[in-house]
Amino acid sequence: MTMNCNVASFRKLTPAIIASQNLAMANDIVETTKAEVSIAIKKAAPALGIDGTDYHVLDILIGLSAAADWLPNRRPLVGPMGT
């Protein structure tokens, strides 16, 4: 079975990369809230090797996303806000 994968040309295409892409493209995202994601990241951070500073950055980015972005069929989006 041949698959078309868009991977940067300098990266070696490995089974792990293909599996990761397949998961990302599966679009089987469960309904969740900002609070649930924040709690999950806080619990998983030590096991994932996420230190205090990185955790705080993630927490800030989650906090900056709009609650409506976490509704079904939406993607959380954080971007620069300006006038």
Rank of each mutant, 00 (worst) to 15 (best):
M1Q: 12
T2C: 05
T2N: 12
M3A: 06
M3W: 09
N4E: 11
C5W: 08
C5H: 10
C5M: 09
N6A: 07
V7L: 12
V7N: 08
A8I: 02
S9G: 11
S9V: 07
F10R: 07
F10S: 07
F10Q: 11
L13S: 02
L13T: 01
A16S: 00
A16P: 00
A16V: 00
A16Y: 00
I17G: 00
I18P: 01
I18E: 05
A19G: 01
A19D: 00
S20V: 00
S20I: 00
Q21T: 01
N22L: 12
L23E: 12
A24R: 15
A26W: 05
A26H: 08
N27A: 10
N27L: 10
N27S: 06
D28M: 05
I29H: 13
V30Y: 09
V30I: 02
T32R: 04
T33L: 02
T33Y: 04
T33P: 02
K34F: 06
E36F: 03
E36R: 04
E36N: 05
V37T: 01
S38M: 12
S38A: 14
A40P: 06
A40E: 13
A40I: 01
I41W: 14
I41S: 09
I41R: 09
K42P: 05
K42S: 14
A44D: 12
A44R: 08
A45K: 08
A45M: 08
P46D: 09
P46F: 11
A47Q: 15
L48T: 04
I50V: 15
D51L: 03
G52S: 08
G52V: 00
T53P: 04
D54N: 15
Y55W: 15
Y55P: 11
Y55I: 05
Y55D: 13
H56V: 06
V57M: 15
V57L: 15
L58S: 09
L58K: 06
D59C: 08
D59T: 08
D59Y: 15
D59N: 14
D59F: 14
I60P: 07
I60R: 13
I60F: 14
I60H: 13
I60G: 13
L61P: 06
G63D: 14
G63H: 10
L64F: 07
S65W: 02
S65M: 02
A67M: 09
A67H: 10
A67D: 15
D69N: 08
D69F: 05
D69K: 01
D69M: 03
D69H: 04
W70L: 04
W70H: 04
W70F: 09
L71P: 03
L71I: 01
L71C: 07
L71S: 12
P72W: 05
N73P: 01
N73V: 00
N73S: 02
N73Q: 05
R74E: 11
R74S: 09
R74N: 11
R75P: 04
R75S: 10
R75V: 03
R75F: 08
L77D: 10
V78C: 06
G79K: 03
G82D: 06
T83G: 10
T83E: 12
